[in-house]
């Protein structure tokens, strides 16, 4: 049973921020509720006021901005992303990812902003967006600010967002020519056991830049710079990646993995190496197609 609370339905972001200020420490932002209502039902959290963000026009919609970046409103649901032709064109990897988040009901209800702000260490989008160099737009009592998503996640269930701030939107830079972005996961139960995202850029016949992120393995999704370094400079040929991928996997094996019901730390490190291979190949194939 969910503990009692009051429900506020502001009509705009500024009204929402004023409502939050009035409610004080006891308020929480509320959008899809798939995580929040669940933890409240389990008695893990209690709030006097939930401020519903679903109706705020500022948090809705998927668009491409003047720079060509993909902008996804914080209250856009997983399902809306999965079915968005804009996302399908700009960032197909995200469509594929979203189609396999939890189940269709959670995707119909849960929002991308809620997912990122809840900061569950097994979040699918968090890991992918980390590799994609996304940033989040926040708006709170102190005004608006942008934060790179690399650094947004501080520890499990904790982000750099202050409690009064609303996640307005996620902004994902347009892929450069020759850039590919891919996400792969091993999943044995509801959430991924390990996931790996790779963004890389090819120029000529070489990979010139690579960013690797891993999720569900360490206590928060992280970038693995050594893995990216290992791939940068490698030939843009899927059959010639043995040594760079092995070096990347070794970098994965250095991570402070956390064992859980899906497997020990050792096994997760191993899986990260396996997924690095498949994610790199997928990203490379997209990159070559866009080169």
């Amino acid at each position: 049973m969910i503990p009692p609370f009051a429900l506020a339905r502001p009509a705009s972001v500024s009204e929402a921020i004023a409502t939050f200020a009035d409610a004080g420490q006891d308020a929480a932002w509320y959008a899809g509720g798939t995580e929040l209502l669940q933890v409240m039902k389990m008695g893990l959290a209690r709030f006097g006021t939930l401020i519903d963000l679903k109706g705020l026009p500022e948090l809705r919609g998927i668009a491409v901005d003047a720079s060509g970046a993909l902008v996804i409103g914080g209250a856009v649901t997983h399902r809306e992303i999965e079915r968005s032709s804009i996302v399908g064109r700009e960032l197909p990897g995200l469509v594929g990812l979203e189609a396999h988040v939890a189940n269709v009901r959670v995707r119909n209800q849960g929002t991308i902003g809620g997912n990122l702000c809840f900061a569950e260490p097994h979040s699918d989008p968090a890991t992918f967006l980390l590799a994609c160099d996304a940033h989040v737009e926040l708006w709170g009592a102190g005004g608006a600010r942008e934060l790179p998503i690399d650094g947004f996640f501080l520890e499990p269930f904790v982000t750099a967002r202050t409690p009064d701030e609303i996640l307005l939107a996620i902004v994902i830079p347009k892929a450069a020519a020759g850039e590919g972005r891919a996400y792969e996961k091993a999943k044995f139960r509801e959430r991924p056991a390990v996931s790996v995202a790779v963004r890389l850029r090819v120029a000529g016949d070489a990979i010139v830049e690579a960013v690797v992120a891993v999720g569900s393995m360490t206590d928060i999704p992280v970038r693995v710079p050594e893995a990216g370094t290992a791939l940068a400079g490698a030939p843009a040929d899927p059959s010639a990646l043995g040594a760079p991928l092995a070096a990347g996997a070794e970098a994965m094996a250095e991570l402070d993995a956390v064992g859980d019901l899906d497997g020990s730390a050792d096994f997760k490190r191993h899986l990260a190496g396996v997924l690095l291979r498949s994610a790199t190949r997928a990203a490379l194939s997209e990159a070559i197609a866009r080169a």
Binding site: R105, V106, Q109
Partner: peptide, 24 residues
């Protein structure tokens, strides 16, 4: 929200009624 026994449709979309506020 795992088993689907409480699935109902809201505007034609399936949701888990166990974790959906009636007010919504």
């Amino acid at each position: 929200q795992v088993c689907g026994a409480c699935t109902v449709l809201v505007d034609g979309l399936a949701i888990s009624a166990c974790t959906y506020l009636a007010a919504d």
